[in-house]
Each structure stands twice: as C-alpha cells, then as structure tokens.
Nucleic acid binder design. Structure first.
Length: 106
DNA sequence: AGTTTGACGCTCC
DNA sequence: CGGAGCGCCAAAC
C-alpha cells in the first residue's frame, strides 16, 4: 500500500478557496507522513488542463510556492492564490498561520 | 538490481 | 535569514 495519486487529488479537492495546505500535510492526512515528495509527484502528473484539482492551493512547509522548472509557474500559482484572497509578503511568502487549511475534525 | 531524479522537509552552518 | 547538506520514498533509467 502506498500513497496513490487519487488519494492526493481527493484530499486536495477538499481544500477550500482562500486556504492552502502543505505537501507534508497532505501526505500526513493520507496516512503517509514522510511522503511529501510523492504528493508533489501526484500533482505534477496533472496536466495543466485539470482544473478539477486546485493544485495551486498546495505549497511547501515554508509557505512558499515550490519552484518548478518552467519559468513563470511560481508567479502563476501565486496569482491564482491571490485571486482567492491569499496574501503574500515581499518575500513571496504567505502566512501558514493565517491561511493553512485545517481539515474539519469530523 | 543499482543509480538518478525530483511540485518536499528539517537541521546545520 | 540565506544557503548547503542530508534524509525520505517512489518512479524512471
């Protein structure tokens, strides 16, 4: 048993607009605490056309948009988040304390 | 089957 | 606070 892409997508879809989650958080929620990277892979497997999954609401533990090979993608993700009300500081960082998604304990 | 490669994360410096 | 190093885990070579 391992972290499936499907499990990741299902969880990411639950992140409400204006909130973000970290790779490690998603991994932990799926029951695989050390699989943060795998979460990244799952999202990478998405084509750009998959607006079904709000991949942009997933950032790294530092509250920063994870750098990707393609130039401009960080900005793109940031734009999407700002459009939802997430604020970034001068360092291109957001406050996890304020915007991190907390799954309902139900 | 061994090595390389990452949308990560934490510790050290 | 910025950068480097190392651990992690699955997938691609």
């Amino acid at each position: 048993m391992s972290l499936s892409h499907d499990a990741v997508y299902k969880l990411v879809r639950r992140i409400p607009a204006g909130r973000v989650a970290t790779y490690g958080q998603i991994a932990a929620l799926t029951g695989f605490p050390r699989h943060a990277r795998q979460v990244g892979y799952a999202l990478a497997a998405l084509r750009g056309g998959d607006d079904d999954v709000p991949w942009h609401r997933v950032v790294n533990a530092g509250g920063r948009v994870s750098p990707r090979a393609e130039p401009g993608y960080e900005d793109y993700q940031r734009i999407l988040l700002e459009a939802e009300g997430v604020e970034f500081d001068e360092q291109g960082r957001l406050s996890l304390a304020r915007f991190q998604w907390r799954p309902e304990a139900a």
